[in-house]
Design a protein around this nucleic acid. Sequence first.
DNA 1: CGAGGGTTTGAAGTGCATCAAATAGTGTGG
DNA 2: CCACACTATTTGATGCACTTCAAACCCTCG
Lengths: 246, 246
Amino acid sequence: MTHKSNPSEIKTYLKTISIFKDCSDSFLAKISANAQCQIHKKGKILFVHDDTIERFYIIKSGWVKLFRETLDGAQAVVDILDNHHVLGEIAIFENNIVPYSAEVVSNAEIISLPLANLKKEIKNDNQLALNMLKSMAHDRRRKDKEIEHRTIQNAPQRIGCFLLRLIDQNQKGPVTIHLPYDKTLVAARLGMQPETFSRALSKLRDETGIRINGATIEMESLDQIVRYSCAACSSNFPCQDLKTTS
Amino acid sequence: MTHKSNPSEIKTYLKTISIFKDCSDSFLAKISANAQCQIHKKGKILFVHDDTIERFYIIKSGWVKLFRETLDGAQAVVDILDNHHVLGEIAIFENNIVPYSAEVVSNAEIISLPLANLKKEIKNDNQLALNMLKSMAHDRRRKDKEIEHRTIQNAPQRIGCFLLRLIDQNQKGPVTIHLPYDKTLVAARLGMQPETFSRALSKLRDETGIRINGATIEMESLDQIVRYSCAACSSNFPCQDLKTTS
DNA sequence: CGAGGGTTTGAAGTGCATCAAATAGTGTGG
DNA sequence: CCACACTATTTGATGCACTTCAAACCCTCG
């Protein structure tokens, strides 16, 4: 389902992506000319791990799940990304082979760009290489955090931590949160079963006094959750989520 | 305990480090001149997370544990590195603040180099930036694998997988493995308790017929372990460990 | 030889997974 | 706009994996 792919419009959007910050205009023009923008429905598989791909992707809207799975169907969610995030670009270091599968988990607008352009340009454009390096470093750090959380935090604490990272942590007073995607998916993202998620969320409610209504969660203040979740984390609150973007 | 720090000798060693491959000679000369090589004893803390550091490190021999810990002492091992690995360099993207603590876990010879040199040079030397980018990408991929393993594999399987990644996976026939460091540390590296490690290793023995003698492990062939451990992994054997180096 | 850390073993508890089934919620076609 | 089909979520019952606490054992090194 190809959408209008106006190069200049795409170019404008690309400029908002961290890895393209301050990149040469000629490169942005070139890559935009080769860009496609498509609208994908929930469930669409963009690629499967160990595929050879020719294009990488940038999310303009919606959510995409990155994952791997074993022969007998066990699945590990590597990441869940939203707009401004880039995926598949890592393949330029692996002979165009992607190390994870990507599935659209809510209707999404996604730009695709040729890997070849990127692969070539990082050798010429030091700014681009530095941007990618910085983004990659940031991302590696996020993974470290993820491993730490799964090691130290229990299920209710991980949920609390996840909720805190959805919001601006400097605000005072009451906060309302909307879960960004299905509870089942949040569960997978946090490395637990849906049933465990449901029970753990109830436990978090009992421990912290938050109010839960479907995908909406209200809290009087962040204090309770911070006390409950951040105790089992090596970072100090406010910890900010480390986003790939920014 | 400062050791002889012969710049030209250090320079030769630096050339074997992946991020310095094909870097400008003048840069290598400069950074070598500012290098120090020290011998550290087991237990030495190189830095603590959230410290501001001025130097990054390269391991010449021995092992270094990267970790974070919470106020009440819970610890998460981020990585355990040996020679040719670089640590602390990530701080150049975070205002010289390191995101993890580093502890020498076996007597080690470690080179330290000024962060400032590196920070400045990646802007001039595209090759250096690309090397770091590639290494960082590789590393991020390793973390993804780590998360996957902790999600999908149980304790005995994780140990089997760990053992396989210690060796050349293409060899046939009997293999003897020496654990590279304390069992307690292997346990922490794999995200489990020492007691669990001990029991899980016994279970792995019962399931695969390997022979265990202290830190030495013998196996008739890899097949048994592969069948047992790799079933719970999305990668195909041989999977190769993804090293920071190489 | 003795001290101390690393390792193993035992017993008991806890947290999460699993299996099963009920319930709520959502989108579809009539 | 309603009824049905299908999916997401919750709840219950049970089992297993890993942790925790405690104690014994073993190995190494001064």
